[in-house]
Amino acid sequence: MKSPEKSTEKTPTTNEPFAFSAANLETYKELLTRYDDVESALLPVLHLAQEQTGWLAENVITYISNLMSIPEIKIKEVISFYDMFYDVPVGRNIVQVCTNISCSMFGGREIYQGLLKHFDTGYLTPTRDGRISLQKMECLGACELAPCMRVNDDFVAITDLTSAIHKLEELP
């Protein structure tokens, strides 16, 4: 992963304080009721924070650490372990391209490389308009769609690079 210093294209910067929105604070409280200890809620809470801000910057980590009484280092360790938590700024849309066996058989790797070139970007680096971050992924669990991508929360079947570009050009 790239270090946060390298890309500064997206707010919030690490200087702005972060807090859950009123609605998300309610969701947070509801999440805690699901578990027998606070730590177990960490993954869902990180998902929630990321839904609000797009990525998990230092200020978000500090806020969650205070909120849940979990050391920052432990939260950072967790964030770095999972592919779907982002500790670098990402674009408005996350596009994951599968490069595992079934998808690579049908051009998944060429599609990923082609998209990086087309959008003139690198792994997770947001496009200049801040619209898209591309992420190479291992098996996404939708091999019948091969080659397959995930665009934000949905699986998208594509046929080749051209159809992938076409799909992504529609994104807001």
Binding site: S40, P44, Y82
Partner: peptide, 22 residues
Amino acid sequence: RGAGAYICGEETGMISSLEGKK
């Protein structure tokens, strides 16, 4: 919900993850 890690399909890895850890 997990967050993208194959190893969480291993039952003890899954338990660690559910506990809010790697």
